[in-house]
Every structure is written in structure tokens, then in C-alpha cells.
Nucleic acid binder design. Structure first.
Lengths: 212, 212
DNA sequence: CGTGCGATGTATCGGTCCGATACATCGAGG
DNA sequence: CCTCGATGTATCGGACCGATACATCGCACG
């Protein structure tokens, strides 16, 4: 999962470890806590050894630009390689069971903008299936095994069941949206300020903008 | 976490590994997938080495009861020791940061029937705090960093934010319920059938009530 | 009658990821 | 001046997972 996330992130722009962590924390904040350095750095080294990423020199512009702003000293900036992009495409498209658990789905979903519509649909439906099964499991327990469990445990199951039903509905909307049309956003009033297509989804052949 | 869950479960009755897994899967189904044998068995051995649990002989009733029903052969049944109960009490009451993450909170909550009210309140409030912080983080991202993120990522954040708000409301109800009165259940019509006291929890002091 | 299949049951191994910890630099504010 | 918080890289032990192996039992199907 971390591998996929890093590869996906580095396609936007080269970054060093600390930055990767921050960006990932922002992007995946909804599904998991900040990723640990204890897994980040070893993974970066693994990816580099495999040739998916390389170190990029840190020299800012051309030559004797006196920096003064930031004294990039020990920072190690990584950029993705051509092999790395290939690897990402393979990872993002293939769907094993781990693709549908909470974390796996979240990571895949966070990079939907780099995925083709067929894959998006497949993943959304797989996730729905998974959640539906979880939901059925909870209903079973609440129905059949309710006498064996204490009130707190039951309340926990009810809350979980509610979350499942809600997520299934959310997925239904996304699937419908995905099938007929291409707008990713579910209409939903009054949460954040501006809603506006920002960086539109140019999934397969993309050009990335950066600061000019 | 696994340690706490096993200790808690074994207070209800002695069990073997397979059974522990099944019960735990039922009890914690709302918050996590089935626990792996790859962590269960090593943990059982660790708990046994520490003296929190012991093997219990499998002999069914008294003597030459011809079994014929089940041929309990290799099953290893564990029971909790006095030290184990003490350990459980210590683990369930003390609250570190890991007590408030999704899994940690879920396990603690699932054993609320064996916890005193003060601890329950402390944990519920800590969890609320944690979720509120996560919620603020998501609001920040949706507000300030929205332009930098693609529509799918934003949708993920919105869904996460919604889940946070919902959980905070759920926790509020539980806290209010806990403070004034002692009924664990939030009134909520029409989900499961019978509600009724089952395996009574006589943990430290309190007695559990249910509808008479 | 056998034969295979699904549930029950115990166990290990490699790998991923986390939490704690260490250490070094830099800019800002007291 | 000096500490504090943000930035930044890195390691270590431990928790937990997923795959795998292996053995027994009862039952259904041929």
C-alpha cells in the first residue's frame, strides 16, 4: 500500500521523505493516520533498489543562485522513473482482496484521477461487495447472536452497521456517477466553500502542472 | 490490543484458539476483520509464558463418558488466571494514545461491560477528542488545500468528514447516556429483535440492568 | 461404499507497518 | 544568547497479517 501511495505521489512532483509524509497525510487523512517514518524510509530505499525511484540532485535553479531561503543540506529528493510509472500503473489497476479493505480502497480511491474509468468502476463495485458482506455479517450477529452479547457490544455493532449502510449508499452514488457521466463529485450542499473542477481528471495521458 | 481482547474474552469462559478467533470476530466485527492465526497463536503463547493464561484440561465431564459427539483431540483450551484478570483490569483502565485510535477504542468499547463508569466516560471523551481533531484536520484540508487536490481526493475527505461528524454525535449520545443514568443503549427503533440480559457482567461493582 | 469437500483445529514464516528514539539544522522569539 | 518548534534523515524492536502446511471429522453425493 505504501509503495503504491509513494509512487502515485511522486508522479505529481519529486519530493523528499518529510514532504512525502506530509502530502500523504493530507491526501489520506480521511482513512488513516500519518504514516510512520519507520515504514517510509525503508520503503523508499526498497523502491530505489528496485529502480522505481531515483535520487534527484537538489541544486535549485542553475548555478550560483545564492539560496538564503532554504539551505537544502541533507535532504534527499526522490523522483519516479519510467519503470516506476509502469509499476504504478500495474499496482493501481490490479485488484486483489487487499484492494477492498479500508486502507487499500482508500489509497486506490485517492489516486482515481490517475486511473481509467473501467478500473474505477471495478474497484468501486468490489468495495461495495466487500462492505455489503461486512454489513450482512453485522446483521447476522445483531439478529442471531444478540442474546449472547452485552449491550455495549451490540451498540458497537449497530454503529458499525449504520456506517456500512451509509458507505454502500455513498458507493452507489459514485458508481452511478461514474457510469453515466464523468464528474466524480456527488452533489452535496454546504460543506466546503468553493466547489469547482480544479485539476480535472486526465487519467491516462496526463500533463502535470507545477509552479512555473 | 490482541492481548487485551483475549484476556477479556477468556473471562467469559475458557476457550481454544479457533473459538477465540470466532468469538472475537463476532464481537469486533464492526471495527476490524478477522484476526489472523499468525498473531493469535504467538500471542497465546506469550500470554501463557507471562502467566496470564493457562492450559485447561479438555476432559469433558467426569470419567468414562463415551464422547462420540466431538473427539476433542488436539484442542488446547486456555483459561485466564488471577494474574490475568489483574492484567486485564490494568490494561482496560489505562489509556494511552493507542486507546483512542479506531481499533484500540473498538476493543475497549467492546469490553465496556467489564469497565467502571468513570473509565468508560474517560475513554468516550478521549475518543471524542481524537475524532474532533481528525475532523478539524479534514476541514482544514477541505478549506485551505482544496485547490491542490483532485476531485476524487476531495470526495474522500468529504466522506471522511461526514463519518467524523456522525461519530462525534454518536459519542455525545453515549456520553450523555453514561453521565445521567446507566443504560448503554441509545434509543433507536427497529433494528434487532429481542434485547435481554445474557451473560451478566459482574465486573468490579455494578450490576447490569436491562428491561425486566 | 468410498470419496472428496467444508468446517474444525494448531502452527510457522516472511513481510509490512508502527511507535519510540536518536540526532542534526534552522529560523523566530524571549 | 538560547531555547523551542519545525524541518529533516534514520534505525530498532515489536505487533499484526497473509500465505501456507498439515491433520481430523462428519456429511453429502455418486
Amino acid at each position: 500500500m505504501l509503495e503504491l501511495a509513494i509512487l502515485g505521489l511522486l508522479q505529481e512532483s519529486p519530493m523528499h521523505g518529510y514532504e512525502i509524509r506530509k502530502e500523504l497525510t493530507a491526501k489520506l487523512g480521511a482513512i488513516r493516520a500519518a504514516i510512520s517514518y519507520g515504514s517510509l524510509y525503508p520503503t523508499l530505499r526498497r523502491l530505489q533498489a528496485a529502480g522505481w525511484i531515483t535520487e534527484a540532485a537538489e541544486t535549485p535553479a542553475s548555478a550560483e543562485e545564492v539560496p538564503a531561503l532554504t539551505s537544502r543540506r541533507g535532504r534527499v529528493v526522490y523522483k519516479i522513473t519510467a519503470d516506476g510509472k509502469e509499476r504504478f500503473a500495474q499496482l493501481i489497476a490490479q485488484a486483489g482482496p487487499e484492494t477492498y479493505d479500508d486502507t487499500g480502497f482508500g489509497v486506490h480511491f485517492a489516486f482515481f484521477a490517475r486511473t481509467d474509468q473501467a478500473t474505477r468502476l471495478r474497484i468501486l463495485e468490489g468495495r461495495r461487495r466487500t462492505i455489503e458482506e461486512r454489513r450482512e455479517g453485522l446483521r447476522d450477529v445483531l439478529g442471531r447472536a444478540a442474546e449472547r452479547l452485552d449491550a455495549y457490544t451490540l451498540e458497537l455493532q449497530r454503529h458499525g452497521l449504520d456506517a456500512c449502510e451509509r458507505e454502500v449508499r455513498w458507493l452507489e452514488e459514485l458508481i452511478a456517477n461514474e457510469r453515466s457521466g464523468r464528474a466524480p463529485t456527488v452533489p452535496q450542499p454546504g460543506t466546503a466553500g468553493g466547489r469547482r473542477d480544479n485539476n480535472s481528471p486526465p487519467p491516462p495521458g496526463e500533463s502535470r502542472k507545477e509552479r512555473p
